[in-house]
Simulated assay, not measured.
Amino acid sequence: MKKPKQNILYLILAASFLLSTGCTDEPSVLPVAEGTPLTVTAEIGTTDYSSTRAVALNSYDRSDFIAGDRINVACSRNDVQLASSGYTLNTAAGAWEVTTGSAGLGFLPATTCRASFPVAYDGIRTDQSTADGSAFLRSNYLLTPEVSVSGAEVNFTGDDAFGHENVKLTLKFQGSGSVSLPAFSRIILQASGLRTGGATTVETIYPFRPDTSQHSWCAVIYPRSADTDITVTVIDEYSVTYKVVLRCGMQKSTSYTYTLKFRNDILVPVGDAEIKRWDLKVRHTGGFD
């Protein structure tokens, strides 16, 4: 009577072992072969790119990537970079393609990838006032989190999408009553750490005017994450100077908008600053948001 019980116990233990070690009759899934070219998808914030959807063509700022945009994708293991490559958005194909002159990335096990835009970012520019907005765009650094690579695709979308690393400052000007605004010859922004985050050095930025029909200027500034007094100097066509000091929190990925009014030849803030996440999707038709 004891032997059958022993046989039953043996069968139960054997079955348990097979289940716990994953030994079944089903074939196991083979991993992606090392070196398999990676397919890249990327978006900014929570809006994805689709070849069937019209994309807001912001030449100076980015709510979405546009045709010809280039990103750099770096592959790392244990914080050591193994390879990097450029990828360019081809809207006709609805895909990110390996940039000409780049080798492209292949699958490597136990790695992560991170992407940045623009390529060769080298800091916030002092003069962002170039008419084509290129200096503003060069200052607008976008970065993704580290994304684990487990197959032949790496997706910088959803929670892993590109986010703004810096801060956006917008100034909107109003006249007083029926008095029209003077023509401006220059606007100057000055504050400690305005471009690099330093605590003591006063730094200067010349902001960009996206639409010459609007009295609105914007600039990329450093995310100091500290309340900072920014001096705004406006010089009109007659070389008359107006000044006002604004308090800005300079929080990463945040857009600050201040409305300033000329009142009795003095420049004064109107109401509180408008503060919102920079990655908030706002469509616009006037050239600025």
Rank of each mutant, 00 (worst) to 15 (best):
P31T: 09
A83L: 05
A199C: 05
S178E: 02
R62H: 14
Q81S: 09
T157S: 03
S192N: 11
A161C: 05
E165D: 08
T36W: 05
S255L: 07
S84R: 12
Y242G: 00
T212C: 10
G287W: 00
V80L: 15
V80R: 15
P31L: 08
G193C: 12
N90E: 02
S51T: 06
D211E: 14
R209T: 01
T126M: 09
T99E: 11
S59H: 04
T88W: 05
V240D: 00
A199I: 06
F162G: 09
Y49S: 04
Q174L: 14
G123R: 09
G133C: 08
S139H: 10
A54E: 13
W217H: 01
A42E: 13
T100G: 14
N72M: 13
T99N: 04
P118E: 11
K252Y: 04
T285I: 03
A93E: 12
S51P: 06
R62G: 03
G151D: 15
T231W: 01
I8L: 02
R62W: 10
T36I: 04
T52L: 04
Y87F: 12
R263K: 12
E26C: 04
W217D: 00
T170N: 05
F288N: 08
S28V: 14
T259E: 10
S59R: 05
R277W: 07
P145C: 07
F262H: 00
V40E: 11
Y256C: 06
D227Q: 11
P207H: 02
T130G: 09
M250Y: 05
K252I: 11
T200V: 02
I44M: 02
T170K: 06
E34M: 14
K5I: 08
A14E: 04
S213E: 12
Y60L: 05
G94Q: 07
A93Y: 08
A199D: 10
W217F: 05
V220G: 08
F262I: 01
A42Q: 13
R114K: 04
D122K: 11
S253M: 01
D127H: 05
R77F: 09
L13M: 05
T39N: 13
G177H: 00
E203A: 06
A161K: 03
C248S: 01
T36M: 10
G133N: 06
S225G: 11
L38C: 10
R62D: 14
L280S: 09
A161G: 04
I187W: 01
S20W: 11
V202C: 02
K3A: 01
L142I: 07
F208W: 05
E153V: 10
T259K: 10
G22S: 10
Q214P: 01
L57F: 06
A161M: 03
N78T: 04
T52E: 04
T204N: 04
L82K: 13
N72C: 07
E203L: 07
L171S: 00
K168G: 03
D265F: 13
G271Y: 03
D160T: 09
S185C: 08
G104V: 07
E274P: 02
L142A: 07
K5V: 08
N166M: 08
T46W: 02
P31Q: 09
R224I: 08
G35K: 08
V149W: 14
V73M: 02
I44W: 02
W96C: 11
A95H: 07
R277A: 11
D48R: 14
P145R: 14
Y258E: 02
A33K: 14
G45D: 02
F117P: 00
S225H: 12
